[in-house]
Computed example of a mutant assay.
Amino acid sequence: MKDCTIIGGGPAGLNATLVLGRARRDVVLVDNNDPRNKVTFASHGFVTRDGVSPSEFRQLANQEFNRYPSITTLQDKVVEIIRKAEGFTIKTELGQEWATRKIILATGVKERFPNIPNLRNFYGRSIFNCPYCDGWELRDQPLALFGVVDYTFHTAEILRNWSQDLVIFTNGEELTKNQEEQIKKSNLRVETSPIRLLTGQDGILQKVELENGLVIERVGGFITPELEQATDLGTLLGVKLNETGGHHSDEVGNTKITGLFVAGEASNVYPSQLIIAAASGVETAMAVNVELTHEGVLGSEK
């Protein structure tokens, strides 16, 4: 019987693992090594790790785990969670199975992109989804903004801190009268024609070609994808999603399912930030440790 199983090896899961390992809890971290930010070459906004690649971030975390015999890490995928009278049974894709008192679901979210031809060729190299993460690198450059109109207006306001040269591409979505009025007030350029093609080299955007024949030069940009939970493990256990798409839980990630916690974007989808997810992992791990202590389960002697 493990004290806690952490599912998902992003910043929330990694930090939760570290905190519980240091609390002498017998923990297992299960991760399938398929993070959402794997296309990104550098992560930003995390003090002392600004500019670190996602793969290096994970590697450094796992090196730290080697100090703690209470931590076990598995590269695998959890495919089923079975509720038991005391805790849960975990089953994985590779056929492993074990019992655990608590679970922290830290599987994050996945992105649904608008239908823009060859967008994936540029995503993570010159087109990003977070101005706070990548705006500095594109400062004062001619930028494109893609996505659902209401979201892009908000992003455009924020993005002006880094560049004034912005064009919003709605990819065929027409503006409402209220949106047209908002455009006039904000002095933003908007192109509603569907996008025919994005062109560039080695992942660096150069031009946006529209169906109406316009070709607009841009060197990069941002997109506002829709985010949804990366796994249905939580909902299959009976946890409903909140209005932002995260699992219903209290402020420390405790769900209505006894022993099941959520952390990071499994709990709060927005804002999507590395350091915020990591902090969430700390809070949730501490809550798990307190609950185990109240139940009379003390730390292992490992």
Rank of each mutant, 00 (worst) to 15 (best):
R160W: 13
N171D: 06
I183T: 14
E174Y: 01
N187W: 02
K184D: 06
S186Y: 00
T170K: 00
G172S: 09
E173M: 05
R160A: 14
L159T: 10
E181I: 10
Q179V: 00
N187A: 12
T170I: 02
R189N: 10
V167D: 00
Q164L: 14
S186E: 04
K177M: 05
T176C: 05
L166S: 11
E174P: 01
N171T: 09
T170P: 04
L188P: 03
R160H: 14
E180F: 03
E174D: 06
I183V: 14
E173L: 05
K184E: 10
N161E: 15
N178L: 12
V167A: 04
G172E: 09
I168T: 02
Q164V: 13
L175N: 00
S163Q: 12
S163A: 13
R189T: 10
T176Q: 03
T170M: 05
V167Q: 07
K185T: 08
Q179E: 09
L159C: 13
R189Y: 04
Q179T: 03
T170F: 03
K177Q: 09
G172W: 06
Q179F: 05
K185R: 09
G172F: 10
V167Y: 06
N178G: 07
L159Y: 07
T176V: 04
L175Q: 00
L175M: 03
L188Q: 03
K184W: 05
E173P: 09
S163E: 13
I168E: 00
K185N: 08
Q164S: 15
S186N: 02
Q182D: 12
Q182V: 04
L188F: 07
K185P: 00
R189A: 10
D165A: 14
N187I: 06
N161F: 15
E174T: 05
E180S: 08
S186T: 03
Q182C: 05
E180P: 00
F169C: 04
V167T: 14
E181T: 08
I183E: 10
Q182F: 04
E174N: 03
Q182A: 10
V167N: 02
S163P: 13
R160K: 15
F169Y: 07
L175A: 01
E181G: 10
K184Y: 09
K184C: 09
L159I: 11
K184I: 06
V167F: 07
E173Y: 05
L166R: 12
T170H: 01
F169K: 02
D165P: 14
L166V: 12
N171I: 01
N161T: 15
I168K: 02
D165Q: 15
V190E: 02
K177N: 08
R189Q: 11
Q179K: 06
Q179I: 05
K185V: 08
E174A: 03
Q164G: 13
N161K: 15
W162M: 14
R160G: 15
K185L: 09
T170A: 02
E180A: 07
V190R: 00
N178F: 13
F169D: 00
E181D: 13
E174M: 07
N161V: 15
E181S: 06
I168R: 02
K177D: 08
G172L: 09
S163L: 12
T176E: 06
G172C: 10
R160E: 14
Q179L: 06
N178P: 02
E181R: 07
E180Y: 00
K184M: 08
T170D: 04
Q182H: 09
N171R: 07
K177H: 05
